[in-house]
Computed example of a mutant assay.
Amino acid sequence: MTIYDVLKKLPYKKQLYIKYKFNIWMQNERNMTEEEFLKQVDLKGMGTYYRWERSPEYKHIVSIVLAAKQANDLLTIYENLKKKVESDPNPKDIEMMLKLMKEINLHNKEAEKFFASDKDENDKDDDLEL
């Protein structure tokens, strides 16, 4: 499950907030100011989003975003570690990488379970105040 699969399940304004917060726009990377974001979602302040950030839903989304970003880091670590192991094998480096991968997979599985469960129709409402 990718972050974009998860975003499809969220109300539009929450999708925009996640894209804004983590700068994960599909088109060219763009930096948006808070004022530009608020104008786009037609809100006066960020309070609604700050309250949402304390929810389990938001925390699971963050987990998926971090897992996606760490996947790129793991690729770099793997490539560097592979070169190091080929020239001077060190079991501690390999063990550390495996532990990190296990931890990421655990968090990602929890987030996938959260978004795979059938949610009530009420949860599909974006709960945002105008």
Rank of each mutant, 00 (worst) to 15 (best):
T2G: 03
M97E: 12
K102W: 04
P11K: 12
D42N: 07
F22S: 08
P56Y: 00
S55L: 04
K39R: 09
M101R: 13
M46E: 07
R30I: 14
E36C: 01
Y17S: 11
Y17M: 08
D127I: 13
K44A: 04
D5T: 06
E35Y: 02
K44Q: 10
E36R: 02
K19L: 12
L66A: 01
Y50C: 01
Q15W: 13
T76C: 14
M101P: 02
A67Y: 05
K83P: 00
D5A: 01
I104D: 13
V85K: 01
I77P: 05
K9M: 06
D118C: 09
S63R: 04
F22D: 12
E34M: 06
D88M: 05
Y12C: 05
S63L: 04
I64R: 00
E103S: 11
K21Y: 13
V85D: 06
A111G: 07
T33S: 14
K14L: 13
K9H: 06
K19Q: 15
E95L: 15
M46C: 09
K13M: 11
T33M: 02
K21C: 07
V6R: 05
K92F: 13
D93S: 11
N90K: 10
K83R: 05
L7R: 12
L38W: 03
S63P: 00
I24E: 11
N72L: 15
L43S: 06
